[in-house]
Nucleic acid binder design. Structure first.
Length: 629
RNA sequence: GCUCUUGUAGCUCAGGGGUAGAGCACUUCCUUGGUAAGGAAGAGGUCAUGGGUUCAAAUCCCAUCAAGAGCUCCA
């Protein structure tokens, strides 16, 4: 629902001066980059050039399309600037002087030009009246800049131009697109190299690469962008996760339900999803009779579009959320306060129309399955229910060893009137979320204005290998939908009351969660999740009989085991099993057969000696049942 | 959606206006083996799709589809 991004505040000079040493270095290196680009392409117009978490970038408007082939030349020019060890010299100027310089094209350039420094003029106009205006010079390169900088260009010796992509000026899609040249810089070459190595490692963990190598999932052009086909191996992982969470749902008093993938447009008119959020939904499926009568009336495509926008259509929609279906289950019977809370859970698949440029791997898709649930409770029960939800999230993340996440509480913006529900209820819900979050034992950030318009929420955010953050689990309090659907329960006073709804999804979506999990484990799933838990490797064909005995004994115990019958040497079979990241390899030969044993090799721990089949079986079964890492 | 880059065998990739290449995987044969690649033979591709230029297009041009990076967006 309409959550407006907080307007990016302009950094004050004080804040800028708090730049860390590394940020300062990177910002200065951005100037070195600009100097080099200005030398190579004097017509370049520069916009912003800030440091980032991974390095820095500088936005440039330039006729020439910068490509990776240009990087060596750019870096060579940068090296010259570093070698010259130019001083970063600060010059304080009046607004008028700065403007004159910009008009003569002198800013972000090596000298006067025939064109103005367009973006710098724009930026100048944004500087508050009372703020000091400064120009930083290194050599002949002058740039409008608040600083701060390192003393000399010689400090910027460990850098690398990383990539080039496009970006909208000021991040607004209506503005022209600039070329954003990314680079990174460190105090010294060693640290730079370490950073580059980390990037290489991250590439190896990428769930898209591992997903292919381990046959976890497939995305097929013929099926559609952003639609995940779970292959058998990936399905095992997902099924295990679903079983895991289902166990806890039972313990926590949830009821599991199943609902269809579509619903009538009327349902979504009531929920408010249609026609208002059409941009992020698949277009409606129009009923045959309705379509025919439209055709008979000579309705044009344009008119059809208008009807769609007005919501004046009959038909169905792929569900963008599970809540309306669950609400209808709740509303299908009368409820007493004694029945509450009612907790309806479903691994529910929803469909959303993400922009094509946004799709990627399993983390941003158009169809996904939420481990969703909706809790219907009284105002008094909200707090306990939130606690229960967080308990579940804690169990999930703890079991999987995912420690590297941050917790974000989205609160309402007190100055905004877009929120539904009574202020006193909001206060209570926000307080309940805060208290519940404290039980996590993790630090959490409270972000006013980040609540949904229908209620406050807690989000769990993790980072993927590239450093992108993904929202996984979420717990949201909702005052809106009970209102829209006029939900009721009968209270102790024998009068109807409105329940509060809580949406929660500890994994978020199975697709995104498994994607993040693949990277978290670098493809080496713990035994309970591993698609193949044990591979039996006979030393030669002579021992296949015994190997089959082992295979069936382990299968009998419920383990996922495979037998490598290939006509290959042990070394080759081991290698394959290692590449497939199978946790346990059992090497079977004459010795094992004679003594009725198996020799264990673990993918990480190596040779673990020989034990009886039964002992190995019991050990692994225990490991699986306890879901050890 | 926008900008740039990319699309050749199941996978990873080379090549490139004139009969389509390698490694791995696959099939068969030899080998019967002790902890990360034994040997040989074979099979496998309208070079993403559709147009155009050309005597000739996988190669050049345009469009479409898809992937990647980034930006915008994400109820």
């Amino acid at each position: 629902m309409p959550e407006e991004a907080p307007a990016k505040e302009r950094k004050s000079l004080d804040e800028r001066n708090q730049m860390s040493d590394l940020e300062r270095l990177r910002h200065s290196t951005a100037h070195v980059l600009a100097t080099a680009i200005a030398k190579l392409w004097p017509d370049a117009q520069f916009a912003y050039g800030p440091p980032t978490e991974q390095g820095f970038y500088y936005d440039v408007d330039l006729e020439h399309r910068i490509s990776p082939e240009d990087f060596p030349a750019i870096e060579a020019e940068m090296k010259k600037v570093v070698k010259e060890n130019q001083t970063f010299e600060k010059m304080t100027v009046s607004r008028h002087e700065a403007l004159e310089l910009a008009k003569s094209g002198r800013l972000a350039a090596l000298g006067d030009r025939e064109v103005e420094s367009t973006f710098k003029i724009d930026l100048l106009n944004e500087i508050p009246e009372d703020e000091e205006i400064s120009i930083y010079k290194n050599g002949d390169f002058w740039d409008l800049c608040a600083g701060p900088h390192v003393p000399r260009t010689g400090n910027c010796k460990a850098f690398k131009v990383m990539s080039v992509a496009s970006a909208f000026y000021k991040g607004d899609a209506n503005n022209p697109q600039l070329q954003r040249v990314y680079g990174t810089a460190f105090k010294n070459k060693t640290m730079l190299n370490e950073h580059l190595e980390r990037l290489e490692e991250a590439k190896e963990r990428d769930h898209r690469k591992l997903g292919k190598e381990l046959d976890l999932f497939h995305i097929d052009e013929a099926v559609g962008q952003g639609l995940i086909l779970w292959k058998p191996n990936g399905s095992v992982v997902r099924q295990e996760l679903q079983n895991f969470i289902s166990e806890h749902l039972v313990r926590q008093g949830y009821s599991q339900v199943f609902t269809p993938h579509i619903g009538k447009l009327d349902l979504y008119r009531t929920s408010g999803h249609f026609p208002y959020y059409q941009d992020s939904q698949f277009p409606p499926v129009i009923e045959r009779d309705h379509l025919k009568s439209l055709a008979d009336e000579g309705c044009t495509c344009g008119q059809l579009m208008n009807q769609m926008n007005d919501g004046d259509l009959e038909g169905f929609m792929l569900k963008p959320m599970n809540c309306p279906h669950h609400i209808k289950i709740y509303a299908s019977e009368h409820h007493s306060y004694r029945d509450l809370p009612i907790r309806l859970a479903e691994f529910g698949t929803v469909y959303r129309w993400e922009q094509s440029g946004e799709l990627g791997g399993m983390t941003r898709v158009r169809g996904f399955t939420q481990d969703d649930a909706h809790l219907f409770c009284t105002e008094d029960q909200v707090k306990d229910e939130i606690l229960g939800c967080l308990e579940l999230v804690k169990i999930v993340l703890g079991t999987l060893g995912m420690e590297d996440y941050r917790v974000r509480i989205g609160l309402r913006d007190p100055d905004d009137s877009k929120y539904v529900g009574k202020p006193e209820n909001w206060d209570r819900a926000e307080e309940a979320l805060r208290e519940a979050a404290q039980t996590l034992g993790t630090e959490f950030a409270q972000e006013p204005g980040e609540a949904a318009f229908y209620g406050p929420k807690i989000d769990f955010v993790v980072k993927d290998v590239i450093g992108r953050e993904w929202q996984l689990g979420t717990v949201q309090v909702d005052y809106n939908l009970p209102e829209r659907f006029e939900l009721e329960y009968i209270g102790a006073d024998n009068k109807p009351h409105r329940p509060v709804m809580i949406h929660r999804a500890p994994f978020g979506s199975m697709e995104r969660f498994v994607g993040v999990l693949i990277e978290h484990f670098a493809g080496k799933f713990p035994t309970w999740l591993a698609p193949e838990q044990v591979r039996v490797i006979p030393v030669s064909e002579k021992f296949i009989d015994y190997a089959e005995e082992i295979e069936s004994a382990l299968k009998e115990a419920g383990l996922r085991v495979a037998l490598d019958r290939a006509n290959e040497k042990v070394g080759a079979k081991i290698r394959l099993a290692q590449l497939d990241k199978v946790p346990y390899m059992l090497v079977i030969g004459e010795r094992e057969k004679d003594q009725n044993q198996v020799t264990i090799r673990h993918r990480d721990r190596g040779d673990e000696g020989s034990v009886s089949i039964a002992e190995f079986r019991d050990r692994v079964v225990e490991e699986v049942q306890s879901r050890s890492l």
